[in-house]
Design a protein around this nucleic acid. Sequence first.
DNA 1: AAGTTCGGCAAACGACTGTTTACTGAATGG
DNA 2: CCATTCAGTAAACAGTCGTTTGCCGAACTT
Lengths: 191, 191
Amino acid sequence: MLDAGLHLLADQNLASLGVREVTREAGLSPAAFYRHFPDLAALGVALVEESLASLHVMIRSVLAEAGGAEELIDRAVDVIERHVREHRSHVRFLARERHGGVRRVREAIDAELGRFAAEVGAALALQPVSRGWSEQDLRMLAELYVDHMVSTASALLEAQEGDPARERRIAATARLQLRLISLGRRHWQGS
Amino acid sequence: MLDAGLHLLADQNLASLGVREVTREAGLSPAAFYRHFPDLAALGVALVEESLASLHVMIRSVLAEAGGAEELIDRAVDVIERHVREHRSHVRFLARERHGGVRRVREAIDAELGRFAAEVGAALALQPVSRGWSEQDLRMLAELYVDHMVSTASALLEAQEGDPARERRIAATARLQLRLISLGRRHWQGS
DNA sequence: AAGTTCGGCAAACGACTGTTTACTGAATGG
DNA sequence: CCATTCAGTAAACAGTCGTTTGCCGAACTT
């Protein structure tokens, strides 16, 4: 049922999804839906949770191995690219419903992105570049990184519908932007 | 009719909007809708165009007056804050449909954001800090600024539902992030 | 003054909707 | 082996939906 929903949400909104539609796609009777979810919103938050597993893994794999700033940037962008390619449906779902019409789903996504920012902030604190940074500044930087990741992933999503050149251009731009941010980071004097 | 649609889209998706719903809200008969639009998607792109007027004005008012980096940042964030407060519905609409389920609307928004980035890039080129910057680097920076603006506006949108403290925190974070970017910009050596 | 466009209406069409109900077979557990 | 839970079904309910049609008055145009 989750798969059926995700498949339908490829070119549709959660708010415009119908119970019958989902069950039809899943090859079940309409009533069967209510055996598993009370709401379509509930199916939505279930999909959010499903999408998170893969996202968390991704973040870890960027932060795990150390290395110079340049390699770290390259690896981050590579991982994002691969993630969008391999989990296209999940990423599209998150991008679409992050500001979508279903409040509970929106809040679930937002809370989780906040947790990501916290995780990134903790990892940043361990890097030598961050010596002397206040808690607040670290959080600010982490949010900047997460927002940038989200923007890049969204752009890739729109591009990857069969346009590899545009995809490469987006990745290149993302790398430059990360380099600029990392430059600002090195010269930061505290707020 | 546009107003009615915009009002309904406050807690709904364009894809889940109904013709009858709109006309009911507008106090008209269902058939009246087709006198003005062939589609609901058409109403969507009309709303996009409506939302753009105010956005363009906003961008100009940030770029117009010169000034030091700090003042420019403060003014930019102030303008965003005010814009979200005063054009809440339009901003919400753009954020929601930017990755929404209606392709034509999505494309219209994307094209317009691209035009904004170009406009910002042209303005950046005039600033003394940008001496020696390549066209590509300027575009990259402009996109970074635009994406950051969009992220900030979205965050403010979610917050402003009656939580002024959170709103102030978001604005403060945005200012710090812009300062960090502007720092990276000053030390940029070209790609 | 005549003709034409414009924006509106009511009514009707069949198709689709969410949800509840009562029922069924299979697996599970004591 | 009996009871219970689980995951499914068909059928029915009253609504809502998008869209078309034919009609109407007002406002322009000539």
